[in-house]
Computed example of a mutant assay.
Amino acid sequence: MRRAVVEHGNGEISHDDVPSFPSYRRPPSPTTTAEVDLSLLEALESSQTAAALEALDLKGLKKLVLAFERRLRDNIAARLKYPDQPEKFADSEIELHDEIEKLKVLSGSPELYPDLVNLNTIPSLLGLLSHDNIDIAIDVVHLLQELTGEDVLEDNDEPARTLVDSLVENNVLELLVQLLPRLSETDPDEMAAVYNVLATIENLIEVRPVVAELVCERTKLMRWLLGKIKTREFDGNKQYASELLAILMQSSAANQKRLGGMNGVDVVLQAVAMYKSRDPRTPDEEEMVENLFDCLCCLLMPLENKERFLKAEGVELMIIVMNQKKFCYASAIRALDFAMTNYPPACERFVDVMGLKTAFPAYMGKANSHEQGQEETQQRRIGRAPDIISCIII
């Protein structure tokens, strides 16, 4: 007999006695993967998945929920009985993980969402977002993202609202945002979980627009988003953070004022300042920069935020961006338009810092680039800038 090291799904390690056999290496198979018809395997897998989705009804849902609740109780009992012996409850968490995965089949039958709510499963699921094992919490986040996906809820408005209302009533917003600091973006799985958290919140807003204000009132999501867009390194989660922040700003005047009071104007200006003299490197990064300017323009609608913009030298920064004639050129003009509308102090500052000298080339539809290709590209970016500048001057 020899001792084998076994790593469980939650990262815990146990030692079990297993028989010792001489090592044996299987000879190469004469059938290579190239000879296997992968299309047949994919078709078989798709047909099995479709069959599983079609087979789910209320009876099947109750069976899934019962199995999930049983595994949840087993895990809770094992953790209470052996709090300092992870190997004693590791198996129960693997089984709990499997049951959560099985619940994903419900995304194929959104008409059963009201039944899921009536079975009182939502509180049990959401409670796992605070589970000590981060992998279990990640499983639930992935499940929520699938259940609330746009493609799933597209033609199921009433079931979708029933599910979202139940989730919000059971504190899904607070629990999701509280999970974010626990996730390390140096780990690929946890980085993906951050993305899924943001996607789930966006899905909830899509179904119930009032969630845009609720999530800002009840949680520290906006502060987390501000921290994310301040980072210099670009990644998919930074892009999504900018997109979600723009959605929150577009949806609510209260959110615009709330973010302004959190030093949001200054933070967004710092984020766009990274691109004052360079272009984004990828289309995704371009989209993020556009999201940031969308945030800035929305922020500049309340009067108090115009004052903050002026104090943070936002007018000067936008003029610098225009002088550089990079990707942000037209976006800077748009931001100035929002800043100066019905706010004379910003107009005066614009004139005082020689903004008209920078504005007139755009007003005339010209971009003084040294290379013809750059000039043509800049003209496309300016778009309706002459009309915008005309409004500013008037």
Results as ranks from 00 to 15, higher is better:
Leu61Asn: 05
Ala55Lys: 14
Gln256Pro: 01
Gln324Asn: 15
Arg258Ile: 01
Leu61Trp: 06
Asn237His: 05
Arg218Val: 06
Gly108Arg: 15
Val215Gly: 09
Ala52Pro: 06
Asn368Leu: 03
Asp279Val: 00
Cys297Met: 15
Lys59Cys: 05
Glu233Met: 04
Ser369Met: 14
Pro361Ala: 01
Arg3Tyr: 14
Pro344Asn: 09
Arg73Gly: 06
Ala67Cys: 05
Ala346Asp: 08
Val164Asn: 03
Val351Asp: 10
Glu286Tyr: 01
Arg223Thr: 06
Ser124Glu: 12
Glu304Trp: 00
Glu87Trp: 13
Val215Pro: 07
Tyr343Trp: 05
Pro159His: 08
Thr231Ser: 09
Arg381Gly: 01
Leu245Phe: 07
Ile138Tyr: 02
Val268Cys: 05
Phe293Asn: 01
His15Arg: 09
Arg308Trp: 00
Val210Met: 01
Leu180Ile: 15
Leu198His: 11
Thr377Leu: 09
Gly314His: 12
Pro209Val: 10
Cys328Leu: 05
Leu336Asn: 07
Leu198Thr: 04
Glu169Gly: 02
Leu128Trp: 10
Asp155Thr: 13
His370Phe: 07
Pro188Gln: 10
Phe21Trp: 14
Gly365Asp: 02
Arg182Leu: 11
Leu180Glu: 08
Val152Asn: 05
Phe89Glu: 07
Gly60Glu: 08
Glu185Val: 11
Leu225Met: 08
Phe350Asn: 04
Pro344Glu: 07
Leu80Trp: 00
Lys59Leu: 09
Leu96Phe: 06
Ile122Trp: 03
Leu80Pro: 00
Val117Leu: 10
Lys306Cys: 11
Ile382Tyr: 10
Glu190Asn: 02
Leu40Val: 12
Val117Met: 10
Ala346Gly: 08
Ser369Glu: 14
Leu106Ile: 09
Asp284Ile: 05
Glu158Asp: 12
Arg281Glu: 14
Ala359Ile: 14
Gly9Lys: 13
Glu206Tyr: 15
Ala51His: 13
Glu243Ala: 08
Val194Gly: 01
Leu221Glu: 01
Gly127Ala: 06
Leu66Ile: 08
Glu313Thr: 07
Phe21Ala: 04
Ser47Asp: 08
Asn156Ser: 14
Ile320Ala: 12
